[in-house]
């Protein structure tokens, strides 16, 4: 299973980005291989609109089945749902700790967007 987490950093010790749509990238961790890649999301930093939609597409194209972030807007949530990617909410922390929390069952799946658009 692949788990995506928005982060401005390049490794598992980096912090989780509080933004989903306008995160500079996603760290995608493969729980089977115990490896990770950094998926670029930087084209959304200056997007006039639809950053959450594009980011959700980017996450989906990494093959991730789960994405963990502090917040998801309504459009991002709609795309993730259509793509069959589970949206899980977390609080601040490192990417590593966040993924461990999820694997230990401490985080739960979101059934709706938890912030407004343009949050």
């Amino acid at each position: 299973m692949k788990i995506a987490v928005p982060s401005p950093g390049k490794d598992l010790e980096s912090d989780v980005d509080s933004r989903f749509g306008r995160a500079s990238g996603f760290i995608v961790y493969d729980t089977d291989e115990k490896t990770f890649i950094v998926a670029d999301n930087s084209q959304n930093l200056n997007a006039a609109q639809g950053a959450g939609i594009q980011a959700a597409q980017n996450v989906s194209s990494t093959g991730a089945g789960v994405v963990i972030a502090p917040s998801f807007g309504p459009n991002a949530f709609k795309v993730l749902k259509a793509a069959g990617v589970k949206a899980v909410t977390c609080s601040a922390g490192t990417v590593k700790a966040t993924i461990e929390d999820y694997l230990n069952g401490k985080l739960s799946e979101s059934d709706a967007a938890n912030v407004e658009g343009h949050w």
């Binding site: 006039a48 609109q49 639809g50 939609i53 594009q54 597409q57 989906s60 259509a82």
Partner: peptide, 10 residues
């Protein structure tokens, strides 16, 4: 260019 359409292989 406005992200108004999203295709996920669907």
């Amino acid at each position: 260019q406005f992200n108004a359409l999203v295709s996920l292989g669907t």
